[in-house]
Simulated scan of single mutants.
Amino acid sequence: MSDVHELMVAVDLRDEITEGELAELRWHLGIGGRPERLSVVTRFPVVVWDEEGDPVIEEDPRPLLAGRGAAARVGGALCSALESRADLPRRGWALTSRQEIHPDEFEKVGELLGWLAARAHETHRRGDGAVGVGFLRFHEADVPEVLTVEGGQVGWPG
């Protein structure tokens, strides 16, 4: 049995994002190269084994929402987009991403979602202070759950 979930992120971001942050965001979405300096999600620790067989922690930066092509478990296609809202009343950036995600990835992806929520337009804020950033659906479920960020923490279901 698989623990894969469908992650759908849809958020409008304010226009105060720096060029460096935009470059990193594009990298995370799979629509740009990796910037030299990471400032949005800065740590990507993984355990590897050295020549003596001892565990060592190394950094392995990887884009978090860059899946493309046919989805293996949730159906449909994996994709990400970032579009300027410069000519619209709510200036900034429109971001959409549809990915397959395993619970082992929740923490790292949660860092990025927390960063996005902090920069989301007010229209994404609910009355209780939480920020709606999208939906999460277990691959065998029919109905997704609303995904929110409150106090910088993602409310992962389950």
Results as ranks from 00 to 15, higher is better:
43 R>H: 15
11 V>Y: 09
22 L>I: 11
50 D>I: 07
50 D>F: 02
44 F>Y: 15
41 V>A: 10
20 G>L: 10
29 L>Q: 02
21 E>D: 09
27 W>R: 00
11 V>G: 11
11 V>I: 15
21 E>W: 02
37 R>Y: 05
8 M>D: 14
18 T>V: 09
31 I>D: 06
18 T>H: 04
6 E>Y: 04
50 D>T: 08
29 L>K: 01
44 F>Q: 05
20 G>W: 07
44 F>A: 02
23 A>M: 06
38 L>F: 07
38 L>K: 02
37 R>E: 10
41 V>T: 12
32 G>L: 07
25 L>F: 00
7 L>A: 06
33 G>C: 03
47 V>C: 05
29 L>F: 00
20 G>R: 11
35 P>I: 01
9 V>C: 03
22 L>H: 09
16 E>A: 14
24 E>K: 00
6 E>W: 06
8 M>E: 13
38 L>M: 08
19 E>G: 08
25 L>G: 03
51 E>D: 15
52 E>D: 15
11 V>C: 13
6 E>C: 09
40 V>C: 08
14 R>A: 14
53 G>H: 06
33 G>V: 08
37 R>N: 00
36 E>A: 15
8 M>S: 13
34 R>Q: 15
8 M>N: 14
19 E>W: 04
51 E>T: 11
8 M>C: 11
8 M>V: 12
41 V>M: 11
33 G>L: 10
15 D>Y: 05
30 G>I: 02
45 P>C: 00
38 L>A: 04
6 E>M: 10
28 H>T: 01
38 L>G: 05
21 E>S: 04
46 V>N: 11
35 P>V: 00
23 A>R: 12
26 R>P: 08
36 E>Y: 01
30 G>W: 04
40 V>I: 15
28 H>V: 02
40 V>D: 08
8 M>P: 00
25 L>V: 08
35 P>S: 05
30 G>C: 04
43 R>K: 13
37 R>Q: 09
20 G>D: 14
42 T>P: 03
36 E>H: 09
42 T>Q: 13
34 R>L: 11
16 E>C: 13
9 V>K: 01
51 E>M: 13
28 H>L: 04
12 D>Q: 12
51 E>I: 12
49 W>A: 11
19 E>F: 02
13 L>D: 09
9 V>Y: 06
53 G>M: 04
12 D>R: 10
14 R>P: 08
53 G>T: 01
18 T>W: 01
10 A>R: 14
33 G>Y: 04
38 L>W: 05
17 I>K: 09
24 E>V: 00
42 T>R: 15
21 E>Y: 00
15 D>L: 05
38 L>H: 06
50 D>V: 05
29 L>V: 01
26 R>C: 14
36 E>N: 09
27 W>T: 03
32 G>M: 06
38 L>D: 03
30 G>T: 03
42 T>G: 05
11 V>Q: 11
32 G>H: 04
28 H>K: 01
30 G>D: 06
48 V>M: 12
39 S>G: 11
28 H>A: 05
45 P>M: 00
42 T>H: 07
33 G>I: 07
18 T>Y: 02
12 D>C: 08
16 E>D: 13
7 L>S: 08
12 D>W: 08
11 V>L: 13
24 E>G: 02
34 R>C: 13
18 T>C: 02
13 L>T: 08
24 E>M: 03
47 V>G: 07
